[in-house]
Design a protein around this nucleic acid. Structure first.
Length: 509
RNA sequence: CGGGGUGUAGCGCAGCCUGGUAGCGCACCUGGUUUGGGACCAGGGAGUCGGAGGUUCGAAUCCUCUCACCCCGACCA
């Protein structure tokens, strides 16, 4: 970069071209990149570390609510998928299918041979294979509830993909539970929805709306689908997690039956729930700014990066030693129940380059340490939630004593900021014209990206499926969910019909 | 799968219309000068121009076919 330094680390900015900004942040923060395989991404160490932190925390929450981990096969016999009619319809179109088990060299090319008797699909989700096993495991009401979680990869052959948000293969967890009663299964469904909401808000600093999906958005085969919906900075909704009450649909399809305490044989009631690497995309789009990624401190791969300023060769070793000692001291402190994650970047790079790399990666705290700081027994600290030049000198002792407080302050600030953004872009609407205006972008130049507009619209809704379709055709806006929170009955502004409560409309990812 | 677009160095692009055997910026490496801040100067390495055919003395450039990717739709965590 020569004399014309950009004012932001990321070009274009969010306001100029949001989708492109997103891709640039993923690249600049070194989170992931496209792979040679269609629609599949390579998650790079910094991005994977975010996922590992998500996993670690959620795994703890699942175990704290009585679940245990298990692992089921990647391959599912096609006939399993056929068992649940709605499920087939929902997933058949996007299944990768394994039809052969051997390659042979012919004319210098490897060709598949050894056709399988029965094709295997690569799991798009595991209800069917897990149901098959549950059927064996469950005989008596004493075997219930069965509370299983699996961390796995799944494949859905989507038409269009976007890093983290929608890839052909993605990583996720899928909880699968079986219960003796409907009430217990419903309770489980809601409990896990609550776990997701807590995780999103307390760990990701991403405010979410908990709600129920309309019939059209329901998981194929589910009786009820609940979700957490978050608002991204382009005001579109991101479905960040789902929890399904499956009724007895899958139990019937897979034959999960048990004898109750009176000797009667019944089908079990099942649930499933999941979140995926999409959450990483959610974090980027909730917190990222025009300088790149902003990691929520509690999930940051590194909480703190120490950047030694070693211009003078004779001072170099002294500075590095001091930084090393500081790193050790900081690592002995804890934040959010884990030892502080401290990175010491001693690479032989220009200081400015290094600083900007860590800004783009979104490390919460940067500590620049040179001879002058050491003489004062202090560090020069930059917070990622402040401007790149907004730095202050902080005594070493004070830093060590307050680093956890500072990080939590940043975490709280990020949640508050995201909450305020969501509130500012949520509008209660009671008029059809206003609704259409809210979701109609202002005119833009030919070829320019669609300007950011709209947000969440809260309206009454009669539940009319045709109307929902019409609005989707007109505006590409859909009902994201029917919020769980209490609501007043009213009148649907589109049909004039009565409505039990308001729903949330938005464009979505 | 419908409509549009693009494939040239690691990344971003120019060159193509008007064929003559490859160039720019960033990144990378080396040397030097700088430096509490995303430096400057000089030099260097790196591309069978997506692939296959064809036209031609000669193809990144023209023609045909093909593959891949991207964007907009329909589908979705």
């Amino acid at each position: 970069m020569s004399n014309a330094k950009p004012t932001t680390a990321i070009t274009p900015t969010r306001a100029d071209d949001y989708p492109e900004w997103y891709l640039q942040v993923v690249g600049a923060a070194d989170l992931a990149e496209n792979s040679p395989v269609r629609g599949c991404m390579v998650i790079k160490p910094w991005g994977y570390a975010l996922w590992e932190n998500i996993q670690r925390v959620l795994d703890g929450m699942f175990k704290a609510t009585g679940h245990v981990n298990a692992y089921f096969p990647l391959f599912i016999p096609v006939r399993f998928l056929e068992k649940e009619a709605a499920h087939v319809e929902g997933f058949a179109k996007e299944c990768a299918v394994v039809t052969h088990h051997r390659l042979e060299m012919r004319d210098g090319k490897l060709v598949p041979t050894g056709e399988l008797e029965e094709p295997l699909v690569v799991r798009p989700t595991s209800e069917t294979i897990i149901g098959e096993m549950f059927a064996k495991w469950v005989q008596s009401y004493r075997d219930l509830p069965l509370l299983i979680n699996q961390w796995a990869n799944v494949v859905r052959w989507e038409m269009r993909t976007r890093l983290f948000l929608r890839t052909t293969e993605f990583l996720w967890q899928e909880g699968h539970t079986a219960h003796a009663t409907a009430a217990e299964a419903v309770e489980e469904t809601m409990k896990m929805l609550g776990v997701y909401a807590d995780f999103a808000e307390q760990w990701m600093a991403m405010p979410v709306v908990q709600g129920e999906k309309t019939a059209g958005e329901r998981f194929p085969g589910a009786v009820q689908t609940y979700c957490i919906e978050a608002m991204m900075q382009d005001r579109k909704a991101l479905q960040a997690g789902t929890s399904h009450f499956l009724g007895q649909n899958f139990a019937r399809a897979s034959g999960i039956k048990f004898s109750d305490d009176k000797g009667a044989v019944e089908h079990a009631w099942t649930t499933s729930w999941g979140v995926s690497t999409r959450l990483v995309g959610g974090m980027i789009m909730t917190h990222g700014d025009d300088d790149g990624m902003v990691c929520p401190p509690r999930l940051a791969p590194a909480h703190v990066v120490i950047l030694p300023v070693t211009h003078k060769p004779e001072e170099r070793q002294r500075v590095l030693d001091w930084c090393q000692a500081l790193a050790v001291e900081l690592r002995a402190t804890t934040f959010a129940g884990a030892p502080l994650r401290v990175e010491l970047d001693g690479r032989d790079l220009r200081g400015g380059d290094k600083v900007w790399q860590w800004i783009k990666k979104g490390v919460p705290l940067r500590l620049e340490v040179g001879p002058r700081d050491i003489d004062k027994d202090a560090v020069f600290m930059g917070r990622r939630d402040r401007g790149p030049k907004d730095k202050l000198s902080l005594g070493r002792g004070e830093l060590v004593a307050t680093v956890a407080t500072i990080l939590q302050d940043m975490q709280d600030g990020m949640l508050a900021k995201a909450r305020a953004f969501q509130a500012a872009n949520t509008r209660v609407i009671d008029d059809q014209a206003e609704f259409y205006a809210w979701f109609t972008p202002p005119p833009s130049k030919e070829g320019a990206p669609t300007p950011i507009h709209g947000g969440f619209a809260l309206t009454h809704f009669s539940g009319d499926v045709e109307l929902e379709k019409q609005i989707k055709d007109d505006l590409s806006v859909t009902v994201r969910c029917i919020p769980l929170a209490d609501g007043e009955p009213g009148t649907c502004p589109f049909t004039g019909k009565p409505s039990a409560k308001r729903v949330i409309w938005a464009k979505s990812y």
